[in-house]
Amino acid sequence: MTDHCCEAMVRQVDARCDQHHGTSVCPDALIGFDARFQEYGLIVHDGGTSSVDIHFCPWCGRALPQSQRDRWFDELERRGIDPWEGEIPAEFQDDRWLATPPRD
């Protein structure tokens, strides 16, 4: 489980709306968080699921974690898994895979 930088970020990332299904369609949702990649982003409310990456918390100003996107793809490749066509193991669908030490 990821520790977010401040209580305001926790409230944003953990917010659930009882009127909308998902943060991309809720106009009150501001920040999205992808646990797989440890990426934060400002949600683009244009009907899709896009977001604009952010690297500092808008509330406390702390630097946010470095993206693990490349490492995620590298680890899947190392295991012989095609992320575009293969089945992604459950531990790679959230941040559990990060417990695996990076390999050179």
Rank of each mutant, 00 (worst) to 15 (best):
Y40C: 06
R79I: 01
A29L: 02
G80N: 06
Q66L: 06
A29D: 09
G47C: 04
P65I: 12
Y40A: 11
Q19V: 07
W97N: 03
D3V: 09
H45I: 06
W97V: 02
D14Y: 13
V52R: 03
T23S: 14
D104S: 14
S50A: 14
H21Y: 10
V25H: 13
L42W: 08
G61N: 04
M9L: 05
D74Y: 10
P83V: 03
G61H: 02
R78Y: 14
E39M: 07
M1C: 01
R96I: 00
C5V: 14
D94R: 15
C5E: 05
P101F: 15
A99W: 08
C60T: 11
W84A: 13
V52D: 05
H4W: 04
R36D: 00
E91G: 03
G48A: 11
C60W: 14
H45L: 05
L76K: 15
V13N: 03
A63L: 00
T49V: 07
D94T: 05
L76E: 09
I43K: 01
Q19M: 13
E39S: 11
D14V: 06
A90G: 05
T100K: 04
G48T: 10
D18W: 14
H20F: 10
I81M: 10
R96H: 15
G61C: 01
R11C: 08
C57R: 12
G86K: 14
C17Q: 07
G41E: 04
D14R: 15
D95V: 01
Q68L: 11
P89S: 15
P58F: 03
D53R: 13
R103G: 11
W84R: 13
I54E: 03
A29W: 07
W59A: 09
G61M: 03
C57S: 07
H55A: 14
L64T: 10
T23G: 13
D104P: 02
T2L: 00
S67N: 10
V25A: 11
S50F: 03
R78N: 10
G61L: 01
V52W: 02
I43S: 00
F33E: 02
R16F: 10
T23M: 11
F56M: 00
T2A: 04
W72I: 10
L30G: 04
M1N: 06
Q68K: 15
Q19W: 09
R16T: 08
V44W: 00
G80D: 04
T23I: 06
L76M: 13
A99D: 09
R79L: 13
D74T: 11
R96D: 03
